[in-house]
Nucleic acid binder design. Structure first.
Lengths: 200, 200
DNA sequence: CAGGGCGGTTAGCGGTCGTTAACCTGAAGG
DNA sequence: CCTTCAGGTTAACGACCGCTAACCGCCCTG
């Protein structure tokens, strides 16, 4: 896998700034002129790169969902043959935490602006999200075989809520350090799963 | 305490519908005409009840924060003299879950549209939220005295993320039953706290 | 029975937004 | 050296939105 070192393209600049602005003020709260200004061009210049404002949001949301799912599939494949399903769950949690800590604006958008998409795009995003959830549910039920499927699905959604709380944890500077925060989130996620998976 | 049985006032109807619409499509995504139509009057008629669209959002957000804080204070007072701080924590969790299950649109608004408020209102909401968090942090550290304050605060925010995930758990009909869901969320919250509060 | 105000109505104004049109410029290619 | 084209620019259009103005009918009260 080639790690990118080249400069970001204009398209990528635009997407990054649009994500930040959408997360800060909401899709309808940001004008195209602002997005343009954020990358040093002005309003209508954006239309050389995207057919419209909607398309930027669509590409962001599809990209997020796709990247989450792809990462999870890769982690699952890497653990193929490994018997320890608990380790696989840990790997999924770790991947989601990395994403939540490194791409906070995207995490914010992901569950906030989905309804602003055109039907086709929204269906695609929802399908990717559903696959991602089902993948987690499968692993979770290997770790806790007594857990019924509906409960497992609810538990997964709730743990996503927990992990996606990073935007509320204060600005990156005020965090006690990335590794510490990641460890805290990881332990809480495992604890939450254990509480619902074990005993009764 | 007098339980309300009388019909809701027009003001209350408006606030309820506005909350639903804001949660569904975002503050900027909803027009005053739509809000009016939702209560059977048309657009400008709303201005007989509110000075402007912003005021509706402000009243909703201040109301949410105030009601959460007030409820928590009450629960704390009721448990005064009780030595079992774990039971107090359970009571806080229960109250938050009731709110998250019964007022899902409000829970959605609460962490989504705060930045659309005028400075004065936003400061007030943030202050109420902070008091609510600190109240939880205090109780949590009684249950787990070894827990440092910054970690406790992060843990509380994360558990709020978990409990506030109810809007993602499917429509009210598809839930496995309110009591079951509430119990699941409660156990997960306690499990998450325990994982970060106990040992290492 | 007069009258006043509560709670509506419709028309319309001013501003903003997404998008298109028309034009420009600098660099690459034959 | 001329052409082409990617990637910009500004001007402007049409739609929409929040809000105000002006008007109106019903009910309560003295």
């Amino acid at each position: 896998m080639a790690t990118r070192t080249d400069a970001p393209t204009r398209r990528e600049q635009i997407l990054k700034e649009a994500a930040r602005l959408f997360a800060e003020r909401g899709f309808h709260g940001v004008g195209v002129d602002e997005i343009g200004a954020a990358v040093g061009i002005s309003g209508p210049g954006l239309y050389r790169h995207f057919p419209g404002k909607d398309a930027m949001l669509a590409e962001l949301l599809v990209g997020i969902s796709d990247s989450l799912l792809t990462g999870a599939k890769r982690r699952l494949a890497e653990a193929d043959g490994v018997r320890d399903s608990g380790a696989v769950l840990d790997s999924l949690i770790e991947g989601h935490i990395d994403f939540a800590l490194d791409d906070r604006p995207l995490i914010t958008l992901h569950d906030r602006e989905l309804d602003r998409l055109r039907d086709a795009d929204r269906k695609m995003v929802r399908q990717l999200q559903r696959q991602y959830v089902e993948l987690w549910v499968g692993v979770l039920r290997e770790v806790y075989p007594a857990l019924a499927e509906p409960a497992a699905r609810s538990a997964v959604h709730s743990v996503f809520g927990l992990l996606n709380s990073t935007p509320h944890l204060g600005r990156p500077g005020s965090l006690p350090g990335r590794a510490v925060t990641a460890s805290l989130l990881h332990r809480m996620a495992r604890g939450a799963f254990a509480a619902v998976g074990e005993a009764r």
